[in-house]
Each structure stands twice: as structure tokens, then as C-alpha cells.
């Protein structure tokens, strides 16, 4: 913090800031704090015959969360999300960087292209991928027509299909923050690196990447976290064969009628992220000092 002289009006300014923030605070309270509170309470409850929550204290749900089965599922979800994130960085970085280096008019056109998929329902887009990847789909048709393969590739309902679906769904969330970081990157810095004898590769590694790191980090967070909990893609493109943590939680609410256990999974899941995020932040603060 830079030392600032506190004027007598700063208290009033503070009050005004809080007033301006009020709508957001109410929103946060109503849609984040309250639901999280409900989830927390439920997670210590039991269920009745019908599946209604009974407010009798129990540790049982948390004991079940740490069952090896659920830990393995959690580990698998993290692994899928990690692979997705890595591919998204590799594919999204050049795109975001390229767009940021265009003229303003061209930039807006390209950004629009990145965002156009959002205009269509997510499910419709996922079904479109099924049309592409299925046995007698577009991809196999093309590969067979060009004689690159003789028998159709088995892609649908495999882990590869899940990864394709996840990368497709989350790539824009990687491109956009990287774009916004790259757009702020002063081109003179890149030129300075060249000027000092750094070729394209070293300039990229030593100047461009560190300076666009905030965008990469934001993109990684935006991709990694939701990818762990994603269940629609694993169902539709993975054939629901291997359970992911998102499917397991969803099942507690919609199939097993076991809300308290679902809530416990949700709470642990959320805590895990809060803690890892806090650690990440602390490390960054420490690095900056």
C-alpha cells in the first residue's frame, strides 16, 4: 500500500462506497451466502424415507465423503479438468494473443466469433459434437473418405470425447482473459526483448508469458474449477460410464434422493477450492514482496 493521507472526507466516502455496494452485497447474501448456509446445515442432517431432509445431527455424510470410492472419483475429476485446462491454455493462448494484436475493428470481429457459440443452447452445441464424432459422423466420414483410416475411430463415449467436449465448452473462458491481458501488453516490451537479442521463443517465454500471466491464471481458474464439476458433458459425450464428482453430486439430488450427502460433497468440494485458492493468493503476495 502506498501511504496516503487520510482526509476528513474519507469516512464519508467509505460510507458512500458501502451504499453503492449494497445491491451487490444483497445479491451475494441472497444467492451465495444463504444457499451455502443451507448446504452446510443440510450436510449435517439425515433424510427420511421419501428423501426429505430431517434435521437430526449426523457426521455420517462427511464420513462417506472420504470413502475411497468418492476420493477416487474426485481425483479423476481433477485429472480430467487438469488435462482440459492444459489443452485450453495451449489452444487458447495463441488465439487470445493473436486477437489482441489485431486492429481494433478486427479485434471486435474476432471476439464476436469467439462469443457466438454462447448464443446457442449449450445442449444443442453438445449434440452437434455428437453428430461430428459419432461412428458414422462427419469426422469419421471425412477421415475415411480421404483414406486416412479404414475403420471408423471409436471416439464417442470415450474419455477422449469427454475431453473434446470439455475443451470445447471452456475454451472461450480461456481465450477471453488471455486476450484481455495480451491487449494490455505494451508492444514496446516485446520489441525491447527482440532488441536485446531474444528470439521469438525466448521473448515469448521470458517476457510475453510472464506479463500475460494474470490472464493465463484467470483463464486456468475459470476453466479448471467448473470443469471439475461438469456433469452434462460426461453424461452426453462420455455415456455416463465413468462417474465424475459432478455426476455423483447430481445423483444425490435427483436419483438417490439423499440431499444431505449431496450437500456434504458440495461443502467439501467448495472448501477444497477455497483453501487452494487462498494458498495460491498467499503465494502470489509472498512472491510480490
Amino acid at each position: 500500500m502506498r501511504p496516503t493521507s487520510r482526509s476528513f472526507s474519507s469516512r464519508r466516502a467509505g460510507l458512500r462506497a458501502w451504499l453503492l455496494l449494497l445491491p451487490m452485497l444483497v445479491w451475494l447474501a441472497a444467492f451465495v451466502v444463504v444457499p451455502m448456509g443451507i448446504l452446510l446445515v443440510y450436510s449435517f442432517c439425515q433424510r427420511d424415507d421419501l428423501g426429505r431432509v430431517v434435521f437430526v445431527f449426523s457426521w455420517e455424510n462427511y464420513a462417506r465423503v472420504f470413502d475411497p470410492t468418492y476420493l477416487a472419483i474426485f481425483g479423476r475429476s481433477v485429472a480430467y479438468a487438469a488435462v482440459t485446462t492444459v489443452i485450453c491454455v495451449a489452444a487458447g493462448y495463441p488465439v487470445g494473443y493473436y486477437i489482441a494484436r489485431r486492429s481494433e475493428k478486427r479485434r471486435n470481429q474476432l471476439l464476436l466469433l469467439v462469443m457466438i457459440p454462447f448464443w446457442t443452447s449449450f445442449l444443442v452445441r453438445t449434440y452437434a459434437w455428437i453428430t461430428i464424432l459419432k461412428n458414422d459422423g462427419l469426422l469419421n466420414g471425412m477421415l475415411q473418405y480421404t483414406k486416412l483410416i479404414s475403420a471408423p475411430l471409436d471416439i464417442m463415449y470415450t474419455p477422449a470425447a469427454v475431453i473434446i467436449g470439455l475443451v470445447y465448452a471452456y475454451l472461450p473462458f480461456m481465450i477471453l482473459p488471455i486476450y484481455s491481458s495480451a491487449e494490455k501488453l505494451d508492444n514496446a516490451l516485446v520489441e525491447a526483448a527482440y532488441d536485446l537479442g531474444a528470439g521469438p521463443v525466448r521473448s515469448f517465454a521470458e517476457v510475453i508469458v510472464p506479463l500475460t500471466w494474470p490472464g493465463i491464471a484467470a483463464g486456468m481458474l475459470l476453466v479448471f474449477v467448473p470443469a471439475i464439476g461438469m456433469f452434462a458433458i460426461t453424461d452426453l459425450m462420455g455415456g455416463a460410464r465413468v462417474p465424475m464428482i459432478g455426476n455423483v453430486i447430481q445423483n444425490q439430488f435427483f436419483q438417490a434422493r439423499n440431499w444431505p450427502f449431496g450437500a456434504a460433497l458440495g461443502v467439501v468440494f467448495t472448501l477444497l477450492f477455497a483453501v487452494s485458492y487462498a494458498l495460491l493468493q498467499r503465494r502470489r503476495v509472498w512472491e510480490e514482496e
Binding site: R47, T69, Y70, R241, V242, Q252, N258, F261
Partner: peptide, 19 residues
């Protein structure tokens, strides 16, 4: 069926996971 639904869910989750 009553609470056995959760045992069914656990059983299938376990089996799918073991694959």
C-alpha cells in the same frame, strides 16, 4: 422404496468407478 435408494446409488457408483 425408502432409504435403500442410497445404497443402490452407492453400489452403482462404486462399480462404475471400479471399471
Amino acid at each position: 422404496i425408502g432409504k435403500i435408494s442410497q445404497a443402490i446409488d452407492a453400489l452403482m457408483t462404486d462399480l462404475k468407478n471400479a471399471r
